[in-house]
Design a binder for these strands. Structure first.
Lengths: 245, 245
DNA sequence: GTGGCCTAGTGGTCTGTACCAGTTGTCGCC
DNA sequence: GGCGACAACTGGTACAGACCACTAGGCCAC
């Protein structure tokens, strides 16, 4: 791993180093989780400045191939998980169907006044409180998604007493509240992670995320759930079936 | 716009500048397309180094709020377009249904040996040539998506003579070839743009894109199309309807 | 065995300088 | 009026250095 960088090459030095490192990662010379040479080490080895090495590493980081931790080092990132999304499922059901052990950490579970977006999505007024459920979703113990759900239906306050770390929301709704999730409208985009998402997911700054906004309807075609989610793009894709109308 | 940066503030200087600029953009002090103060100007005005100003600008750029052009300046970016995707449509049909004037620029339209992914998706062998159609898709004259389609069915070579800058692929398939697009399987993820996409879209390096892989089936449930697409995340979201099975 | 301190790593932030490459506007010349 | 050269701007690349903040390991004292 000492192929020199060609300073007379028309491509920038940082770019050459970036491609060189990318090749090694893709070729499997370093495994996910393995630390790669530090900025200073690359700087010495290739006779370039530390800032030049840093730019190469930073770009591979924003592309999701690497992640960096202050005081520790730069490491190869995990490859992504594929998600199948043909039917309306909860996160738990989805993970189980893929053979992953789902998990969740409840960050917030409380009664709140609905936001403007939630009001619009659920067709309610700000005076009608909703249950806000915020969960960090895990697959095999790894944070994969952050979901913030606004829930509204008759008797919704009962959800405050449910244990959402060990149960599926949709199962609880079906079995205890007579709310049958039937259809949903979703909006999926791509974005860069926020600072908070970066911290919760343990991903590098500038990482892309899939952003999803979902309005779910029950068997009477009433909206009961408005959820905003962010999914790590390095571990998640949506799988969609389309038909004609 | 001369609120000083607080060098004793615990947040990094570049971050304070970034948030200050973000506020001005969001507040509408600069309109999309408008140039903002240069790196050197910000450096002088706030008594910081040009590299510190550059980092703030670079991050706002990767977040999609700004775009930069060498030799010209840094400009405020356009807000995004929302896309509705409930049924299987072509890009043209989709844009028309949203009130946008679709357009396309054909980059490649030729007979090729199928790639490994295309073989797998279409259920063919490398000896069975496909029509490769690569198009830069425009909305209101603006590049929005890059689509690379591999097409395979009886008489597919006829597609080489079609004009895909002024016609919808799916319309042509229905009307001339008896191929009725009926259903599709899609995989949607988020990623950072490649260098080529950056150039074709005119977006900054490190911008997020939505990546879509679609296998479309005809009325006999035979796969006839395998398409890989990239959509600018700053101008595009998918809209999806979900049901139960 | 444990806790604290120190050292040596790591990445992060910032400054300053220099030069390259691209773009645009102005001015002079034909 | 058009064209070319030049200057002044812009962002991009690179170097060098310094210091900050974090992490981990080793060592020593209790």
């Amino acid at each position: 791993m000492t192929r020199p960088l060609d300073k007379s090459h028309p491509l920038p030095i940082y770019y050459q180093l970036k491609e060189l490192l990318r090749e090694k990662i893709v070729a499997g010379e370093w495994q996910p989780g393995e630390m790669i040479p530090s900025e200073r080490e690359l700087s010495e080895r290739y006779g370039i400045s530390r800032m030049t090495a840093r730019q190469a590493l930073k770009e591979l980081t924003t592309e999701g191939l690497l992640y960096r931790e202050q005081g520790r080092g730069t490491f190869v990132a995990e490859p992504k998980i594929e998600q199948r999304l043909a039917k309306l499922t909860s996160f738990s059901e989805d993970m189980l169907s893929r053979g992953f052990q789902p998990g969740g950490r409840v960050l917030r579970q409380e009664m709140v006044s609905p936001s403007t977006l939630a009001c619009r999505a659920l067709g309610i007024t700000p005076e009608q409180p909703v249950v806000l459920l915020e969960r960090l979703r895990l697959a095999e113990g790894e944070p994969i998604a952050l979901e913030t759900s606004h829930l509204y239906f008759e008797g919704v306050e009962g959800l405050l007493d449910e244990d959402f770390e060990n149960s599926s929301l949709y199962n609880i709704l079906r079995e205890k509240y007579g709310v049958i999730p039937t259809r949903a409208e979703q909006q999926v985009g791509a974005d860069l992670c926020s600072h908070r998402e970066q911290e919760l997911f343990g991903i590098p700054e500038g990482s892309p995320v899939l952003r999803n906004k979902r309005i779910a309807f029950d068997q009477h075609d009433r909206p009961f759930e408005y959820t905003e989610s962010a999914y790590r793009a390095d571990r998640y894709v949506f799988q969609i079936e389309l038909g004609t109308l």
